[in-house]
């Protein structure tokens, strides 16, 4: 059954409008003065409010995916395009080096992307790219608030992704292979 709530008619004081407006402004002014004096109410009571105080995420948080470099500052991505293939919203777009492209910046890896773009407007932070990556080159990191003024700005290119991604020190597979191959070039002789 519908309950009809009686709407109380406004009193004369309320109908004059301005006094209530001023009441409201008083609250605003009080907070303003407190902020000016450095006594933000929220800061005083706890951790603060977003966006003045960015939200601290826990360690396992999976935010925006960025590319990482290895401990020697080389691009880890070898442009295998598995992330591009697996990406459900088709946010990732890789331009492979092609036959004439620049070789990888570390020996033996042979290959790295000419361009690597993630459209952050499309990305759903699902983490499949990180899961599928055979090179540990892409990680969901802690950024959750990505902003931009244009759509183009939200397409992050290789430079930006690498710069945001930072360094991930892991197993240097290709370097290890190269070292193993170099070792085999010389005949093992017992040191005497």
């Amino acid at each position: 059954m519908t309950k009809v709530v009686d709407r109380k008619p406004l009193t004369f004081y309320e109908r004059t409008y301005l006094p209530t407006l001023l009441e409201g402004l008083k609250v605003t002014a009080r907070h303003f003065m407190r902020s000016v004096k450095g006594g933000n109410a929220a800061l005083a009571t706890g951790d603060g409010y977003y966006p003045e105080v960015p939200w601290k995420v826990s360690e396992g948080y999976r935010g925006a995916p960025y590319l990482v470099k290895d401990q020697e500052g080389n691009t880890k991505c070898v442009s295998c395009q598995l992330c591009e293939f697996v990406c459900p919203p088709k946010a990732i777009r890789i331009t492979p080096p092609g036959p004439e492209g620049v070789p990888a910046d570390r020996p033996n890896a042979e290959k790295m992307p000419r361009e690597f773009e993630i459209n952050m407007l499309r990305c759903i932070f699902c983490g499949l790219c990180q899961e599928v990556c055979p090179e540990e080159a892409i990680f969901l990191q802690q950024h959750y608030s990505l902003t931009g003024l244009t759509r183009e700005e939200m397409v992050y290119d290789k430079e930006r992704l690498l710069q945001l991604g930072g360094v991930h020190a892991g197993i240097q597979k290709w370097k290890h292979k190269l070292e193993e191959a170099r070792e085999q070039e010389s005949f093992p002789v017992k040191a005497d």
Partner: peptide
């Protein structure tokens, strides 16, 4: 035998590390 080969190499001025 590895020591013998190394011995020959050292005496002859050859590189024992080469295949």
């Amino acid at each position: 035998s590895a020591e013998i080969r190394s011995h020959f190499c050292t005496k002859l001025g050859l590189d024992a590390h080469r295949h």
